[in-house]
């Protein structure tokens, strides 16, 4: 086994253990936002898109790099945005004096 593989494998296994550990019982209320948040984190694949784009040297590879960057960017940008929107609803001030913008019950 090469040094590189050993290091990567160790990192992989330890990260799995951290993942199992950090996700102990969470309230049902937060399960959907949590899933969305985890979904955003695997958007880190966007870093991989940079790496392959740096290697690309012909049209076929450019197309693949484009597809990879496009997909990864949707995942990461959309993932964080929608998670933040969901979670933002929980910390809205309690007595929000939005007394209804369009005069609902006047």
């Amino acid at each position: 086994m090469t040094q590189q593989l050993y290091t990567n494998l160790a990192i992989f296994i330890l990260s799995l253990l951290v993942g199992f550990e950090v996700m102990s019982k969470i309230p049902a209320t937060l399960q959907t936002p949590m899933m969305s948040g985890a979904n955003a984190i695997h958007g880190v694949v966007v870093v991989g898109a940079f790496v392959v784009a740096a290697e690309a040297n012909n049209v076929g590879f450019y197309v693949l790099a484009f597809v990879c960057a496009f997909f990864a960017a949707i995942n990461v940008a959309g993932g964080y945005t929608v998670t933040d929107r969901m979670l933002g609803m929980f910390d809205r001030p309690k007595n929000d004096t939005h007394k209804k913008d369009d005069g609902g019950e006047q």
Partner: peptide, 15 residues
Amino acid sequence: LIIAGALVGAAGTIL
């Protein structure tokens, strides 16, 4: 990628 991917893989399984 390895760390974040494994983290989501494990946490996602528990979830």
